[in-house]
C-alpha cells in the first residue's frame, strides 16, 4: 500500500517518521491495521528474538503474518482500549535500552506515544511510521468528548451531536486533533462533508 504524504501543516501537527531496525536490548512494537506492513518491512529473525509485538487488526488481515515472524511475544488485541492496560504494564516493566516502534493510524500512534512519555521512555527511543487510514481522533472542544476514526470534515460529535470542523491543531496530551462547531455563526448551515485531505 502506498504511503500517504501528509500536506505541510502547522507546528502543533505531529510529523511521523519511518521505522528502522535499531540495536537495543529489547523492542516493543505497537501497531494497528496496516501498521503491520511497516513491521514486516523491518523485521529480521535477530530483531524478533527480543521483540514484543502488540497488534490491533482493526479489520485488517495481517495478524498471521506478524505471528509468523516468531517474535518473542505476540499479542493480538481486539481494540486499543482493550490493549492499553497491557501496554502500560509492559512499559512499567521496561528496562533501559528499550526501543519502541509505533505504526499504523495517527490515533494509535498518538495514544501509544502518550503512554510511552507517561512511562518516562525518552522520545529518542520512540519511532513512528504512519500506515493505512488517514482518519483522525478528534476532541470536541465544546463537550470534550473524543470521536474516533473521523474521515470527513465536518463531522458530528459522537457525544454532544454538534457539527464540528476538523482543525490541524493537535494536542499530544489528548492524542487528538481539535473539533470546533462549524455553524456557530450561522446555525444549521453545515457544509457538505468531504474527505479531510480533499
Amino acid at each position: 500500500m502506498a504511503k500517504f504524504e501528509f500536506p505541510p501543516s502547522i507546528l502543533s501537527r505531529p510529523v511521523w517518521g519511518r521505522l528502522e531496525a535499531r540495536s537495543g536490548k529489547s523492542h516493543l512494537m505497537i501497531a494497528d491495521a496496516e501498521g503491520a506492513e511497516a513491521i514486516l518491512d523491518i523485521a529480521t529473525p535477530e530483531l524478533m528474538e527480543n521483540t514484543h509485538i502488540i497488534y490491533i487488526p482493526k479489520g485488517a488481515n495481517h495478524a498471521d503474518k506478524l505471528r509468523a515472524l516468531a517474535p518473542a511475544q505476540f499479542y493480538e488485541g481486539p481494540s486499543y482500549d482493550a490493549s492499553v492496560q497491557r501496554i502500560r504494564r509492559v512499559l512499567s516493566g521496561a528496562h533501559m535500552g528499550l526501543q519502541v516502534y509505533l505504526t499504523g493510524t495517527e490515533s494509535l500512534m498518538g495514544q501509544a506515544m502518550r503512554e510511552t512519555s507517561t512511562a518516562g521512555i525518552p522520545h529518542s527511543a520512540v519511532q513512528t511510521e504512519h500506515r493505512g487510514s488517514v482518519a483522525r481522533r478528534m476532541q470536541c472542544v465544546h463537550c470534550k468528548g473524543i470521536t474516533e476514526d473521523v474521515e470527513l470534515d465536518p463531522f458530528v460529535c459522537s457525544h454532544c451531536g454538534l457539527n464540528l470542523f476538523v482543525r490541524d491543531h493537535y494536542s499530544r496530551r489528548h492524542a487528538a486533533y481539535q473539533g470546533v462547531c462549524v455553524d456557530a455563526e450561522d446555525h444549521g448551515n453545515i457544509p457538505e462533508p468531504k474527505g479531510i485531505y480533499e
Binding site: 502547522i10 507546528l11 502543533s12 476532541q139 491543531h169 494536542s171 499530544r172
Partner: peptide
C-alpha cells in the same frame, strides 16, 4: 483558545494556529 487543549504544549505548538507570524 483552550487551556484544556493546549496545556502541556510548547511555545511553538500553542501558537501554531496563528497565521503569518511564524
Amino acid at each position: 483558545w483552550s487551556l484544556d487543549f493546549d496545556i502541556g504544549m510548547n511555545f511553538f505548538e500553542w501558537h501554531a494556529p496563528v497565521p503569518l507570524a511564524h
